[in-house]
């Protein structure tokens, strides 16, 4: 055997440089898209005589609308991101918003209007409906997590079942009647910039949890190689239960903010929110095959989502086209993710 010591020291041919975080790509995407709208805004009068040249970005009102629009689905996306990182998916969040909105709101009504589900429970302190809405979401998430972790059915099926069931609960609760007229205090969650603050606060909180705690390491480990996590002694089932419960609770928070903002709860609330939330995560670089992505990516993805929506309106593009283009963007984001993985696999 030759001098093995030197062989062990041979520099491997593969990557030495520090990895380029995927979030940078998303950020570049966000800036590019915003600049495209900015330019189009200035040259727009060339083909539309009814509109004066104007800035897209330098408009306080527009920026606050963009952020406000994505805040509620963004809260859901924070939870969905964590589920996707474990290698799962949550299709139930939109319906859970509906159910949590109805049940939570029924504890928020003011005595001036007592045609509620619980006629005697009026003028409750706002902590009660808030806790009820979040708890509803958490229970739904707990059931999702239990099904995925312990019955081993695919998360797609488990949460699809919850999607239908939770919407059913929302409809059954008041036989389809909306619940309105909350107490004055209840409006606090949805007024002004509060939804944005709640979104940003939760995003920061869970970003820190994913980056710096045991919870984060294990979430990534499970999504990356569930078997490795298991033989390393991680209680995979219990961890999945926790992640899905958190995602459900965040859907509950979204319901709280939504009902507070709209001063009403309707059984149809939150329809398709799960898809917007998943799209935000995917556009933000969260890999649907698990193990990769971050809350920062999802927040950037949410902003891209908001900028595109607002930009289309800004350019006067028909709402029908908007949906078609949005769908295409989601597919492109997934194609980009798959291409990234193939490249990485070739390198290894």
């Amino acid at each position: 055997m030759a001098d093995v010591g030197s062989v062990a020291g041979v520099a491997p041919k593969t990557v030495h440089r520090r990895q380029w975080p995927g979030e940078v790509n998303v950020l570049i995407g966000l800036v590019v898209i915003a600049l495209v709208f900015e330019v189009l805004g200035w040259i727009q009068p060339a083909w539309r005589s009814d509109i004066a040249a104007q800035s897209f970005l330098f408009n306080k009102l527009r920026l606050s609308i963009i952020i406000g629009q994505v805040a509620i689905t963004g809260i859901i996306a924070v939870g969905v991101t964590q589920v996707i990182i474990t290698g799962g998916i949550d299709l139930s969040s939109g319906s859970v918003v509906g159910a949590a909105a109805m049940i939570g709101m029924s504890f928020a009504q003011a005595s001036t209007y007592s045609r509620a589900v619980y006629p005697h429970l009026t003028d409750m302190p706002i902590i009660v409906p808030a806790a009820v809405a979040i708890l509803c979401g958490a229970v739904a998430g707990f059931v999702n997590g239990g099904l995925v972790a312990y019955t081993k059915i695919p998360s797609f099926i488990a949460t699809l079942g919850m999607m239908v069931t939770a919407r059913g609960v929302a409809n059954w609760y008041t036989k389809g009647q909306p619940i309105s007229f909350p107490t004055d205090g209840y409006t606090v969650f949805g007024s002004g910039l509060h939804p944005v603050m709640i979104f940003v606060g939760l995003a920061v909180l869970f970003h820190l949890a994913l980056r710096f705690t045991l919870y984060g390491n294990r979430t990534y480990a499970i999504g990356s190689n569930e078997e490795a996590a298991r033989v390393s002694g991680i209680n995979v089932e219990r961890h999945l239960l926790l992640v899905y419960t958190i995602a459900g609770a965040l859907a509950g928070v979204a319901a709280l903010v939504l009902t507070s903002k709209n001063l009403t709860a309707q059984a149809g609330m939150g329809v398709m929110y799960e898809l917007d939330a998943i799209a935000m995560a995917v556009i933000g670089g969260v890999s649907l095959s698990g193990g990769r992505g971050s809350i920062i990516g999802t927040v950037l993805g949410a902003l891209i989502f908001g900028v595109i929506t607002s930009g289309f309106t800004f350019l006067g593009i028909d709402a029908y086209y908007q949906q078609i283009i949005k769908g295409a963007i989601i597919v492109i984001a997934v194609i980009a993710d798959v291409a990234r993985q193939k490249r990485a696999a070739r390198r290894a």
Binding site: L214, N217, Y220, A221, G223, S224, N225, E227, A228, A229, V231, S232, G233, I234, G291, R292
Partner: peptide, 17 residues
């Protein structure tokens, strides 16, 4: 039994962080 998306220390200490 390694988690591809974690760095080296996290893999070394996986399950006993």
């Amino acid at each position: 039994a390694l988690a591809d998306d974690l760095d080296v220390p996290s893999n070394l200490f996986l399950g006993r962080e």
